[in-house]
Amino acid sequence: MRSLIIEPTAKTPKVIMNSDINVFEIVGRSIPEDSVGFYRKVLDWVDEYAKNPNAHTNFKFQLEYFNTSSSKCLLDLFRKLEKMYKNGHDVVITWHYDADDEDMEETGEDYKALLEVPFELVSI
């Protein structure tokens, strides 16, 4: 399927959704005023992808900053991945955070507690 690539800005992360090379990444900052508008494209893409996913899907998140309106959008995204997992697909979410960023580690733990999909915290 067609890839979704979004270049990063001061307020939005770099997004790579490429099923051909099996790379799914959201990296950078996610602090837009209109998070719903930004994530709609990503959520729509994942809906399409979920219809016929790869044998193994690893979704990588590596966020430096994110605001609370993004946090709800991310949960919506995680829920879609959780659903794929529950439908029998091999899905893993990896949450990368700076080793000294306790807040980002804690946020990862918040999500992990709410989700029933493999969710790995990776300290970098």
Binding site: D34, T68, L75, D110
Partner: peptide, 12 residues
Amino acid sequence: LNDGELSEKGTA
């Protein structure tokens, strides 16, 4: 985070 819906302003 789990229960709340986004408001029309996209805030949670």
